[in-house]
Design a binder for these strands. Structure first.
Lengths: 343, 343
DNA sequence: ATAATAGGGACATAATAAGTCCCTTGGAGG
DNA sequence: CCTCCAAGGGACTTATTATGTCCCTATTAT
């Protein structure tokens, strides 16, 4: 069933919102029947005229009965109401979830996609698609978008599609390479995003783990300092959140490093910063790029992360710095809400 | 799955057609890609402007890629196309079916609802709902609607909903009682239709099987002759089709009558006329009301009948007199098309 | 009786869809 | 190398639809 709803949300998103609106009207009539137009409008917070058009339509379809005493559901209307309920709940369970998450994590905006992106490839694509759409809706001309690395970010990059605005958008890596596989490196992802969206990109080639002297020298190169400046002026930051266990398996760092993370109880990582469940930074990768203190200047910070195993890390990063937008999946959302992570 | 589509077809039918339209565009692009706007318009028989709006939307959703060389599907677009296919086929399989039926039976208009109304209560309601909607869309002010009897007609009556036009509509039975249960009698059904639609009704109380003398006397009563005149001036006739087997079980006629029907190979009945598979009338109930020779004067004749077992009867009645509208279900439609009933 | 609430009609206006025409660009073919 | 065709895209007008606004009449409970 989910499939149809998901497909429709791509092919005709209005369909679902209209369906939802009419369903809401139906349900409200059912609860209050017989009810007049005026009380319905105030109850539904619609303008009277709009409500009236909807009601006229519903009557035309034979779903509501409209008489002197007020409106009532017909037998058919009741049937539709009842049979539609599970679908609607599925459709808007997420918006309810997202409301709860917003409050719980103190985030301005939360998008939730169905499923578990950790185990379901389709769900991961949905997550990425949502992220890509969000970027598209937020970017304006001549802005810089800083992107982090990781497999989720890669999926986002592949979901980008061209729009005229992107022609004047520059994608930059939030930080230099962090020792991942090439296709997960921020540099690569910035380039893919630009490729798929029709935008420009700049790379930041600063090796990890170099001496302080070498670093200072490098950052004086105009090629590099230019990009560094762009990064610090980024209007949008898009990043994902790694969880401790996956990090442990993937990073090429040595055993001591893993022990350090374990000792300090790191639960997650984002663009090179490792944090514990209280949101305390326990380690930072030594590489050039966006620093924590640059974040307040970034206009929009979009976190894209899903899967139940990342729940703790997602919850924790909200304490690291104030989030404004989170794109996640149902699995992570429910896990976060079901557990009492510290604020 | 069917449920969601069915519900949506009630709650937001126009949006489903939008979905269909976009799907068609997607599919055509897939076949012809890379394809230009002009060739698409001629191929899809849309105006250029409309096609353009749709394509813009699809690009916005990241489903099509739009480049100098023409339009192509994105990976996502292909995915949506493929996953949506079964749903679309389900949604419009019926319109294809109805095209075939129109040609096969030489009917102007055919409506098909999902399922088998013989075994599925929900399907029967759908059938009735479609019938009721059709009546609603055809009736104009101050017209007379003649209705026949039967359980299907009863369901149609219960699916009627009020509309201003019905206030000036009169429902009359097509013929007098035919010895069925009260709730299946044409008289009762006319009254229920009027009740549920907000219209007026007149009854025709002429007993079956009375002597010729008594009949002549009765039809001179103004009460009765008035109604008879109304019937003969009916603008819309709504009737169902009974199949031989059900008739055998339900009628209260004696064994001789059943033998007669069997002898003459009757396959169906409509408003008192029994016919064989060639469309020859083999018996007519002796009761007052609409006669076959009145039919050409009736503006619109709507037959509502479903269920596989009625397939033969439905096919046969098209030879009895020219049909213009048939409302049936998937089961009957497929059965009719799968068999070679005589023309 | 009367006040409150019901639905419904009518019309202006805002928003959006659709029709129409023309432009620039890139590539295939002469 | 040039020409021409078909590609997408911009810009404007017109038609259609949705919405806002205001007011009317009928019913019903007090």
């Amino acid at each position: 069933m989910r499939t149809l709803l998901t497909l429709q949300s791509q092919l005709c998103p209005d369909l679902l919102s209209v369906m939802h609106k009419r369903y809401t009207v139906l349900r409200r009539i059912y609860y209050l029947q017989p009810v007049g137009r005026r009380s319905l409008t105030s109850s539904l917070q619609m303008t009277e005229r709009i409500l009236r058009s909807e009601v006229d339509f519903l009557r035309e379809q034979g779903l509501v009965n409209i008489a002197q005493a007020g409106m009532t559901l017909t037998e058919q209307g009741l049937e539709v109401l009842q049979k539609l309920q599970p679908f609607i709940e599925e459709y808007l369970g997420y918006s309810q979830l997202s409301e709860e998450l917003k409050e719980r994590l103190n985030i301005q905006e939360v998008w939730i996609v169905p499923g578990d992106s950790e185990h379901d490839e389709w769900a991961k694509k949905e997550l990425a698609r949502a992220g890509a759409q969000l970027i598209k809706s937020w970017v304006q001309e001549d802005q810089v978008v800083a992107v982090a690395g990781g497999s989720t970010m890669q999926a986002v990059a592949e979901s980008m599609s061209p729009t005229p605005i992107f022609k004047r958008t520059t994608f930059v890596p939030a930080r230099g390479g962090v020792g991942d596989a090439v296709e997960h490196e921020a540099n690569y992802i910035a380039s893919r995003m630009a490729k798929n969206s029709g935008g420009r990109y700049r790379m930041l080639h600063v090796p990890d783990q170099i001496s302080e002297e070498a670093y200072q020298l490098l950052t004086q190169e105009t090629q590099i300092s230019d990009v560094l400046h762009m990064i610090q002026e980024a209007s949008v930051l898009v990043y994902s959140i790694g969880d401790a266990k996956t990090m442990a398996g993937r990073r090429k760092y040595g055993r001591e490093f893993m022990q350090l993370l374990e000792e300090k109880q790191a639960v997650g990582e984002s663009f090179g910063y490792y944090f514990d469940r209280n949101g305390t930074i326990v380690h930072r990768t030594k590489t050039a790029g966006l620093r924590l203190r640059d974040l307040p200047k970034v206009g929009r910070k979009i976190a894209v992360a899903g899967g139940a195993s990342k729940a703790e890390a997602i919850a924790a990063i909200c304490s690291v710095f104030p989030q404004d937008t989170l794109v996640t999946d149902e699995a992570a959302a429910r896990k976060i809400l079901s557990q009492n992570y510290p604020l």
